[in-house]
Computed example of a mutant assay.
Amino acid sequence: MSQSQPSYHPAPSASSVTLPRLSCDTHCHVFGPQSRFPYPEGVAFRPADAPKERLFALHDMFGIERCVIVQSGCHGYDNSAMLEAMAARPGRYLGIALVPIDVADATLADLAAHGVRGVRFNFMPHLEVGASAQDIVAFSHRLADYGMHLQIHLAPQLIAETGAILAAAATPVVIDHMGRIDAAAGPDQEPFCALMDLMENEKFLVKVSGSERASARGVPYDDAVPFARRLVETYPDRVFWGTDWPHPNLAGGPPDDGVLVDLIARIAPDPAHLRALMVDNPQRFYRFED
């Protein structure tokens, strides 16, 4: 893709939702700036810069005080841009890295010391698959030594098969974006049923992010809300929320993040569920130290 591809909404709207203190965005990215953090050759997508300053401004606007930055595939295994953003807000911003499964122990130790809490693997058609599910399970034993977990981004048709293998992991397993389900297929669709079955195993956790990706109707993404709400109500202590800013590889361009924040009130209308989703679950699982 061209480096001129839009990276984020230029003027997100104000949200009507007042978030609890210490609310956390558990899934977002930083891209570049490429003048300091150039993309490696051969990456699948090359978005325009989405630097930490824009991310910080977005969070400040919505009252989001904590964050987990997820390393993006466009930067490959060079986690430098993510680490720099984390260091700019120490203790409040943590990370999820991309590493090869043959990464040195010294590198894992260094990442953990700098606030990296997990490693992400992709099973999506548009992204490079870093390892097989079986190899990832074996690798999870090394992650456990450093207090890290697995984060998995997988296509919906792979939830049942891949999830069954990952159940043997030595660490918790976080599923991205509600398993990338398609809201148009309805609540009885096989991928969502597989996700609900997977969540019966307490090893698994899920991010109720990506409503803008799941929706078939577009703004305000009403058709995606019931899926997220059901996950929150059924597994209230194992759910997280995230913006997915700046929304890479999203058809139609970046969404208005104010609209996505507004959805939180409908995803978690119960005050106890809201606090668990936005504050308590991230605090417990990611171990914020601020």
Rank of each mutant, 00 (worst) to 15 (best):
Q3N: 12
Q5W: 00
Q5G: 03
P6D: 05
P6E: 01
Y8C: 04
S16P: 00
L19R: 07
S23R: 08
S23L: 08
S23K: 06
T26F: 09
C28R: 00
P33C: 03
Q34K: 14
Q34I: 02
S35A: 15
P38A: 03
G42R: 00
G42F: 03
F45N: 14
P47C: 01
K52E: 15
K52V: 14
K52P: 00
L58I: 12
H59E: 11
D60M: 04
D60E: 15
E65F: 02
E65N: 10
E65R: 06
C67F: 01
V68L: 14
Q71I: 05
Q71N: 08
S72T: 13
G73A: 13
H75P: 10
G76Q: 02
D78E: 11
N79V: 02
M82C: 11
E84V: 14
E84K: 09
A85Y: 08
R89P: 12
L94S: 09
L98M: 13
A104M: 02
A109H: 06
V116Y: 05
V116W: 02
G118S: 01
F121I: 01
M124Q: 14
V129N: 01
G130D: 06
G130A: 13
G130C: 01
Q134K: 01
Q134C: 00
D135C: 01
A138H: 08
L143Y: 04
L143D: 02
A144N: 11
D145V: 10
M148I: 06
H153A: 14
L158F: 14
I159H: 11
I159D: 12
I159C: 13
I159N: 13
T162H: 15
G163M: 06
L166C: 05
A170L: 05
P172K: 01
V173K: 04
V173L: 11
V174I: 14
I175M: 13
D176A: 13
A183N: 07
A184H: 07
A184P: 02
A185F: 00
A185K: 13
E190W: 03
F192C: 06
F192Q: 01
C193T: 15
A194P: 09
L195S: 12
M196I: 10
M199H: 06
E200Q: 15
L205D: 05
L205Q: 12
S209D: 08
R213A: 14
R213D: 12
S215C: 08
R217I: 12
Y221E: 07
F227C: 08
A228R: 09
R229Y: 04
R229V: 11
L231C: 06
L231P: 08
T234N: 01
P236D: 04
R238V: 07
F240W: 06
T243W: 00
G252A: 02
G253I: 02
P254G: 09
P254Q: 07
G258C: 03
L263E: 13
A265N: 04
P271T: 04
A272C: 07
R275H: 15
L277G: 09
V279G: 10
D280L: 00
P282W: 06
P282A: 07
F285I: 15
